[in-house]
Design a protein around this nucleic acid. Structure first.
Length: 803
RNA sequence: GCCGUUGUGGCGGAAUUGGCAGACGCGCUGGACUCAAAAUCCAGUGGUGGCAACACCGUGUGGGUUCGACUCCCACCGACGGCACCA
């Protein structure tokens, strides 16, 4: 009987489902393992072959840990709010909820066809009111703690979709999602104070088992820098300018100052003569997109304001300019310019003929600014000091004279949390006509998203909810009228805490039971794409820390170990896309070759973390191997082959034990490709053997089970066991069977291999040397030459160095 | 420009601690089976030279450390990903 994947896979998927094989209980007597995938957005396109890669990886780990005696939590859910559904709804006049649930059903069916061992009783959906009740609850807590506030923000405005985009959703001046050109617009927004957690978000990265590249990206995104705030008085004015600098030690080298064009003080300090030039410049800048101000603009521009600042350390008058190379959003939006020691200031000073005054020895400042360390000069009491000492000294001086202080700054900005969209969690706030606002009381949560079939943009920058007056307008007991918040939450909201809900998905009283959280958290393994390196992972960490401070969760961090799977590219080594016609549909693969083949192939392609190209020949190769495994054990009549016996001739002892060892070790370290290749080696050896010891066949089937679970279950049955293989204890290996009495040693001359010999394992150094010298080919290379040195590692190799 | 990842046969990749480069798979070649083909099984397969033993060359490029380097160090080149004047 040939290997009939469709029959076998359907049979076992039904078995697992009927028997609730993967149902997770809170059995705290066992060690726990929480393996989590980044839950998908159920798009209309369905699954692509990239999804199964990460899912298979966590599934292998889950099945492996079950066999190792762990209580495994391995759940799946849906991140189902999101813009595509809303856009589709607007186009077709449907409600996003309807086809979102269709998409979810399709995704679930596709995912289930892959034989993944999820506990489907824990399935969650961010659009389910039972779920988003708690998303709203967390928002209310943030609000109560002063971490959610409203602010008029210059936001990225997509004039076609009429939605606001966060900075990080704008790529090259265009919307990441719609591709529309983005404009700037001031709108009232809800903002979350993620910056209050900036220090902890940087510091706590240390203790996480994450790829260094991701940690580095987060550190850079948060962008902590240590420096000083310095106050400059303004000539003929009682105003002050506060600048931020990381190099306060170069204060004596400041030769001008720059304000961001949007800086509040510009209007107050500009002189009459310069007023026209300044307003012209500001008009020119505001018309430019961020892209034009940065990428496309390699040439520094700016305008003199006519005003002068006073250097606090020496009383020098410094001309104050405005220039778009200073950003209003970073630091204080004002800098002291030290052109001798800063690239940007140097470029600007050269263009506008401003003074360049060196205060550190080194480099040639007629050619280029000198950024490095060195002895300070032209700096009065800082002369002679190096950078670190000079910074300490100047900060002390500034503090003593009330002219500044040390200061830490972050690149990270607060998180614009509201979206002018329908398809998101309603923000549970009511704005009253008396000017006050209040939260929807906790016992009234969830605040349901009203059902709407006709989604129309409000046209005024508000979400389509502004059209739904029944929902929108509320009256308080005292007769005061109010209007509900029309902004909704971003897609990042539901995904910032879903890993907690999986622990206790049906809890009516709490987000999750504290004892269960204590048992299950942290997530032991979190697998997903690197595109979430910063945003999702940073937001989730922020919420988690907030919930930790509230005492809701027991751990500071949510995800202990993070792994990013690489991309699966098309056969032409390019990213899969419809336009390139290189998209592979997993449904087709499952139908033609089976889920087990797909799983084995995706794991065998190469290291999980690397990008690798899809190959049609590759998948047939994996299928061929599974066929080969099947035929090894099952004959044409569908019976276990006769050569599987209780007799052990011993010829497979070594390779079997090696295989158990290597596969165990590789799976532990998620090196699935080499684990599979070792199983292939075993199968190749088994084909050469006349008798297959049943114990070894049992063990091999167990090793195979996490990779090709359907086939393994079927073989397990035919090997005479009861179902299921899932909780059968993982095989052990016998170290003594791996170690040979004899080993092959290498003879090298000058580091090149010139001979080999089989020797007993415990051979001593001198015998090895004698053997080497006696080797015919070795003699060809050492005869007549002086032996200078012999390096010998017993049992491994010997290197004779001749001169 | 900065940060990160990466570079090994015809292709995907392996080499876990500095110690036989190319495991395993694909492809290709040959053999067995077959009337034949497919499938399957077995064997071979980095390049050059040689009947062979074997020799020389070979892990992006150039240098270095070492008895010995895919592995460590320095400089450079290419590919991929992220960031964009962050004071």
């Amino acid at each position: 009987m040939t290997y009939e994947h469709q029959k076998i896979e359907q049979k076992w998927q039904k078995f697992w489902s009927d028997n609730h094989t993967f149902k997770t209980t809170d059995d705290t007597s066992k060690p726990k393992y929480y393996a989590l995938d980044m839950f998908p957005y159920p798009s209309g396109q369905g699954l692509h072959v990239g999804h199964p890669e990460g899912y298979t990886a966590t599934d292998i780990m889950s099945r492996f840990k079950r066999a190792k005696g762990f209580n495994v939590l391995h759940p799946m859910g849906w991140d189902a709010f999101g813009l595509p559904a809303e856009q589709y709804a607007m186009k077709t006049g449907h409600n996003p909820a309807d086809f979102t649930s269709q998409n979810v059903a399709h995704f679930r069916e596709q995912i289930q066809s892959l034989g993944l061992s999820y506990d489907w009783d824990r399935e969650i959906n961010t659009t389910d009111p039972e779920y988003y009740k708690w998303t709203q609850w967390i928002f209310e807590k943030l609000y109560e703690k002063g971490l959610a506030y409203e602010s008029k923000m210059m936001v990225n405005w997509d004039p076609i979709d009429r939605v606001v985009l966060a900075n990080e959703e704008v790529i090259d001046g265009k919307s990441e999602r719609s591709g529309n050109r983005v404009e700037r617009k001031a709108l009232r927004q809800w903002v979350l104070k993620i910056t209050a957690y900036a220090d902890r978000l940087v510091d706590d990265l240390e203790e996480l088992d994450w790829p260094e590249a991701i940690k580095e990206q987060q550190r850079h995104w948060i962008g902590r820098s240590k420096g000083a705030a310095v106050f400059f008085n303004i000539d003929h004015s009682d105003k002050q300018i506060e600048v931020y600098t990381t190099r306060p030690d170069t204060l004596f080298g400041a030769s001008y100052m720059v304000l961001a064009p949007e800086h509040q003080l510009v209007n107050e300090i500009v002189t009459d003569e310069q007023s026209q030039a300044v307003s012209d410049y500001r008009a020119m800048i505001s018309a430019k997109s961020d892209l034009e101000r940065t990428d496309l603009n390699k040439d520094k521009t700016g305008v003199f304001t006519g005003a002068y600042g006073i250097n606090p350390v020496n009383g020098e008058k410094l001309p104050i300019w405005i220039a778009d190379y200073v950003l209003a959003s970073y630091g204080t939006g004002a800098i002291m310019a030290v052109p001798a020691h800063d690239e940007r200031d140097f470029e600007f000073a050269n263009k506008f003929n401003l003074t360049i005054k060196p205060v550190i020895e080194g480099g040639d400042i007629t050619q280029a600014p000198y950024i490095g360390d060195g002895v300070h000069i032209n700096s009065d009491f800082l002369n002679g000091f190096d950078k670190v000492t000079a910074i300490d000294n100047i900060i002390s001086w500034l503090e003593e004279h009330g002219a500044g202080h040390s200061q830490t700054n972050f690149r990270l900005r607060d998180w614009i949390f509201s979206r002018q969209r329908y398809w998101g969690e309603p923000i549970p706030v009511i704005h009253w006509e008396d000017g006050t606002k209040s939260l929807v009381p906790e016992n009234e949560l969830p605040l349901l998203l009203p059902r709407a079939t006709e989604l129309r943009p409000s046209g005024n920058g508000e979400s389509p909810l502004a059209n739904l007056t029944d929902w929108l307008e509320v009256t308080r007991e005292d007769g005061v009228k109010g209007r509900r918040e029309t902004n909704t939450m971003p897609q990042w909201a539901g995904s910032s805490w879903y890993f907690l809900r999986f622990v206790d998905p049906h809890n009516q009283e709490k987000l999750a039971d504290p004892d269960k959280l204590k048992y299950w958290m942290n997530v032991d393994l979190y697998v997903g794409g690197a595109e979430h390196a910063v945003l999702h992972l940073l937001y989730a960490r922020f919420w988690h820390k907030f919930l930790y401070d509230l005492g809701v969760v027991p751990t500071k961090e949510p995800f202990q170990k993070l792994v990013n799977q690489g991309m699966i590219l098309g056969g032409n080594h390019e990213k899969m896309s419809k336009s390139k016609g290189n998209v592979v549909n997993p449904d087709d693969i499952v139908a033609q070759f089976g889920a087990d083949t797909l799983r084995v192939y995706e794991m065998f392609m190469g290291p999980l973390t690397q990008s690798k190209p899809w190959s049609e020949e590759g998948i047939t190769g994996s299928r061929r191997w599974l066929d080969r495994v099947w035929r090894l054990l099952v004959d044409d009549a569908g019976q276990l082959r006769d050569h599987v016996t209780t007799v052990n001739q011993g010829d497979l002892d070594k390779v079997y034990n090696q295989t158990v060892k290597k596969v165990t070790d590789d799976v532990e370290n998620m090196r699935f490709n080499t684990a599979i290749s070792q199983m292939m080696v075993f199968v190749n050896e088994a084909y050469k053997s006349e008798a297959l010891p049943i114990d070894y066949m049992n063990g091999f089937t167990q090793l195979l089970a996490p990779f090709a679970p359907h086939m393994a279950e079927e073989l397990w049955l035919r090997l005479g066991h009861e179902s299921s293989i899932t909780y059968v204890t993982w095989p052990e290996y016998d170290e003594t069977q791996i170690v040979d009495d004899t080993v092959e040693i290498i003879f090298q001359v000058n580091g090149k291999v010139r001979g080999k010999a089989k020797v007993t394992r415990d051979i001593d150094k001198n015998s090895m040397i004698d053997l080497a010298k006696a080797d015919e080919n070795v003699q060809n290379f050492i005869d007549g030459k002086e032996i200078r040195k012999i390096i010998a590692i017993p049992g491994k190799f010997i290197n004779i160095v001749v001169g």
